[in-house]
Write a protein that binds this DNA or RNA. Structure first.
Lengths: 228, 228
DNA sequence: CAATAAACTTAAGCATGCTTAAGTATATTA
DNA sequence: TAATATACTTAAGCATGCTTAAGTTTATTG
């Protein structure tokens, strides 16, 4: 049984819910506590503990040894946290001219500290954007996720075709800084010229300049066919 | 003796240091723990406890039953927190058009959560302002406080003279919203027409419109002589 | 100047969120 | 299917920052 009363949504709890949401995106299976622990860089023990607390708050369902699943209530909080994160990123890029690699860490802390009033004003200032500067959809205030165009990862794209960059995985700052240095932006045109069988490196052309990306770097870019 | 090790600057600690700085502004006397407790709306016990911790960190000197005084190190942290607060206020007003009453509470949480990098970018964006939208000086990155022009409180001003509003005490949101509603802004011209002996109400004229302010409301406004 | 009031501190305790160490359940494999 | 490895949970403990209750010091006043 729980040893104490759990009442408040805290920064930690928002981070758990956000991470569980991300880990649930492509599966219907419950998320294991160890997977969460790994992502949040804490021990399994801490995650088990928190699972009980969040379960007591009806933010997720938790079966011992089986893992965790968000409830509607938990999903709503996760989406709202993601919303605040992505609005902050958009706002900082728009007002201060920060670049792809600079916004994530800032938004990571600001997302937990912003009143609904301020978030609404930022949303309005940005004219209610559907996508953030990395191409990720911004959940609406009502918790609806705008639908991203059907994208394909650059590692899976067809040789000889020209694409538009529609989304970028920005979990790695170093790679983002590299893209910024090359002048690559969202909605840049990118022609996939060839792929090397040896290690799946790709040869691309962006703004008429040729680049070679390793498979790992290419896997960060998601594109749509230019002629759609 | 302290029961445990104290290492980190936390949000709470920044709030203590900021409050002690504010309470030390017009006196050389040590600040009593009860005064701090009252301002921060916590118990004296908590303040005594924290005094020991901050003293262990060499952020203030603390003599039991005598009160507390910031060290240079503590003063630096307080000033930096105030700097972040006032830059945020200035930024939110400039970008989002928030008004006098709307920024304080937002800045109060954001001030603790902003990297030096982001603060520098905001500072640069605002062109290194010396004063915030309430007329308060913004400490520089080096911890220097810009010198405010010699102001006088409206409660002490001379009848018959015309002044410029140079600073506003914005600790009360209701009063700020009232000023906003009247269209009163920083650097507005204000003519002091009369003062009632009964309760020290003042009759003023701003933008050619007459207002009556209670002494309490008037005490929020600080002015300089128009013809200087 | 002693009694008392006011101010302040200490002690014990609790909520949060983490850790390490030990214990239990599930999965694997011989 | 029993032994063992892996995954997961529980228990104990600690740092932070607060509370209430009890104890101590300083200030006040008759």
């Amino acid at each position: 049984m729980l040893k104490f009363i759990v009442t408040m949504i805290t920064i930690s709890k928002e981070d758990y819910l956000k991470e569980i949401y991300a880990l649930s995106l492509f599966t219907d299976e419950p998320v294991s506590t160890s997977k969460i622990a790994e992502k949040l860089n804490i021990t399994n023990a801490a995650t088990s503990d928190m699972a009980k607390k969040l379960s007591a708050l009806d933010l997720l369902s938790y079966e011992k040894y089986k893992g965790v699943k968000l409830t509607e209530k938990g999903r709503t909080i996760a989406l709202n946290t993601i919303r605040r994160h992505r609005l902050w990123e958009t706002f900082l890029i728009k007002t201060l001219g920060l670049n792809w690699g600079e916004v994530h860490d800032e938004a990571e802390v600001l997302e937990h500290q912003t009143s609904e009033f301020l978030m609404d004003r930022i949303d309005q200032f940005l004219n209610f954007p559907e996508f953030d500067p990395h191409g990720d959809p911004i959940p609406t205030k009502e918790g609806l996720m705008p639908v991203l165009p059907e994208v394909v990862c650059l590692t899976e794209a067809e040789i000889g075709k020209t694409y538009i960059i529609q989304k970028v995985d920005h979990d790695n700052k170093e790679v983002m800084d590299y893209f910024t240095k090359l002048g690559i932006e969202l909605y840049s045109e990118i022609a996939l010229e060839d792929r090397m069988k040896f290690d799946n490196s790709v040869f691309v052309s962006i703004n008429n300049i040729r680049h070679t990306f390793s498979q790992q770097v290419a896997s960060k870019l998601f594109v749509v066919n230019k002629n759609i």
